[in-house]
Computed example of a mutant assay.
Amino acid sequence: MRSTLLLACFVGLWTAVNSLKICAFNIQSYGEAKASNKRVMEILIKIISRCDLSLIQEVRDSRGKAISALLMNLNRYDTSHIYTHLESKRMGKTTYKEQYLYIYRKDMLQVQEQYQHLKLYEAAAESQVFSREPFIIRIHSPTTLIKNFVLIGQHTCPKKAMKEMEGLFEVFQTIRKKWKTENVMFLGDLNAACSYTTNKGLRNVHLWSDPKFHWLIRDEQDTTVREKTHCAYDRIIIHGKELLSGIVPESAQPFNFKQEFGLSEEQALKVSDHYPVEVDLKPNHRYHLRNEL
């Protein structure tokens, strides 16, 4: 009995250590001002270095200096990995522009293809479904049970959240056909909670009503920093049996960096008004055994 328990503990610990962590973080207007704030940058680096891949949202860096600073500091902080990035075009229907940014460990993952959704599905751009078109990448992950899957990163406009979430279903259909895959993860600040959604409206959103889509960040979870709010704005949604079976159970959570780093609300809000959300993928034990022998 004791040996069985020890084995279970060992397997659980090994899975936790060797799993691959995917995160999504709305940093809230990340630009040169935050990049030049030493204390804020230290916290951001600690948060992002926990993840093998992060989708960063609300990047407002017209000169590219804030992105360069983030990568430079990240690689200095964590020398056990090599971090690289992919950035989208600057997007927005007005003078307000944002970028998406994927930061990932290139010694752990391979990005096989990337697309900005506006190139894939012109009708969506013409009808202005999205304020910021999704940024999509196709991943090869040799260290996990699931080897190939797609990430669709999205930051919705709050006032059009449900319309844009329904637009993501059209994106999914395009990607499924183009790359011939069912294994898709949606992630980002979807504003999918509180005053930006209604029960009636969500019933018309395929990602919500179709049982093939699994919402890993649940409604009762809080992805906001402010004490006065309790909303699951940031989400991770899974499609595909293979990808779903490759998720570490109960690993999808917001990361409360305020509590983790002992920050006051005021201090935490200088970093962001959102918590990152994260999920772990199960490791490929054969891969890790082969590389550890």
Rank of each mutant, 00 (worst) to 15 (best):
S3M: 13
L7R: 10
A8W: 13
A8Q: 11
F10S: 10
L13K: 12
L20T: 13
C23A: 11
Q28M: 10
Q28A: 11
G31H: 03
G31S: 09
A33L: 13
A33P: 01
N37W: 00
K46W: 06
R50D: 01
S54H: 02
S54C: 15
I56K: 04
I56Y: 05
Q57T: 11
R60Y: 00
R63N: 15
K65R: 14
K65P: 07
M72C: 10
R76D: 13
Y77H: 10
Y83D: 02
H85M: 13
S88A: 07
T94V: 07
T94A: 11
T94W: 09
L101Q: 05
Y104W: 04
R105A: 06
R105V: 01
K106T: 13
V111P: 02
H117A: 13
L120M: 15
L120A: 14
A123I: 14
A124C: 12
A124I: 03
A125V: 12
A125G: 12
S127N: 15
Q128T: 14
V129E: 03
F135D: 08
I136Q: 09
I136Y: 09
S141F: 05
T144Q: 03
N148T: 14
F149V: 05
F149C: 02
V150M: 03
H155D: 08
E166V: 03
L168A: 10
F169S: 11
E170G: 10
V171C: 12
F172I: 07
Q173L: 11
K177R: 13
K180D: 09
V184L: 05
V184G: 00
V184H: 02
M185E: 02
M185R: 00
F186M: 06
L187A: 04
L190H: 08
A193T: 04
Y196N: 09
Y196V: 03
H206Y: 12
H206P: 00
W208G: 07
D210E: 01
P211G: 09
K212S: 14
W215M: 01
W215S: 07
W215R: 07
R218L: 14
D219E: 11
D222P: 06
V225P: 03
R226E: 12
E227N: 14
K228S: 15
H230R: 12
R235M: 09
I237E: 02
G240K: 09
K241W: 00
L244V: 03
L244R: 10
L244G: 05
V248C: 07
E250P: 03
E250Q: 11
Q259A: 12
Q259K: 13
E260Q: 09
F261D: 00
Q267F: 01
Q267L: 09
L269Y: 01
K270T: 10
V271I: 10
S272F: 04
D273T: 07
D273K: 01
H274N: 05
D280P: 02
D280T: 00
P283A: 08
H288T: 08
